[in-house]
Computed example of a mutant assay.
Amino acid sequence: MKYLYLLLMLTFCSITHGQSIIGQWETYDDETQAKKALIEIYEKNNLFFAKIVKSYSSEKDAVCENCKGTKKGKPINGLVIIENIKKDGDEFNSGTILDPENGKIYKCYLELVDNYKLKVRGYLGLSLFGRTQYWIRKE
């Protein structure tokens, strides 16, 4: 019986503490709740990044017209929109997020609500002034 209890505890701990933001996530329009994009979050050099794998709301060959610098005119599909996120306890922060619709870059933090829901917050200055979205893990 002790071994069964230990096995259950180890399984529970690995499930709750082993959750990762890495993977593919679907985003939805804030107003219509229509599926907007498929995003892939990946890790590189202990930092997290996200790119648009597929945009459902723009044309296949759409480019980021409003972006600045090296991202101006780049295809939406494949565009890196989250950069340099650091893991900090249960949050992932200190990075930036790009809104390809207006080309603006905001501070960003991510928080895994559960293994299937990711809180994404983009903000200016203090985190009080911004927008929160919830992304759903693609199965």
Rank of each mutant, 00 (worst) to 15 (best):
C64H: 08
E65M: 01
E65S: 10
N66T: 01
N66A: 03
C67S: 12
C67Y: 01
C67E: 02
K68G: 15
K68M: 11
G69R: 05
G69P: 04
G69E: 06
K71C: 00
K71I: 04
G73I: 01
G73H: 07
G73A: 00
G73Y: 02
K74T: 10
P75H: 02
I76A: 01
I76R: 00
I76H: 02
I76P: 10
N77Q: 06
G78Q: 11
G78W: 04
G78M: 05
V80K: 07
V80E: 15
I82N: 06
E83A: 15
N84E: 14
I85Q: 10
K86R: 10
K86A: 15
K86C: 04
G89L: 06
D90R: 14
F92G: 06
N93G: 05
N93D: 13
N93Y: 00
S94T: 09
S94R: 12
G95T: 05
T96Y: 02
I97H: 10
I97M: 09
L98D: 11
L98S: 06
L98F: 06
L98R: 14
P100E: 13
P100F: 04
P100R: 07
G103K: 10
K104C: 09
K104H: 08
I105D: 14
Y106Q: 07
Y106K: 05
Y106G: 06
C108D: 07
L110R: 05
L110N: 07
E111Q: 13
E111T: 06
L112M: 10
V113K: 14
D114L: 00
N115A: 11
Y116T: 11
L118T: 05
R121C: 00
G122P: 12
G122E: 01
G125S: 02
L126A: 06
S127C: 00
L128P: 07
L128T: 03
L128H: 01
F129N: 05
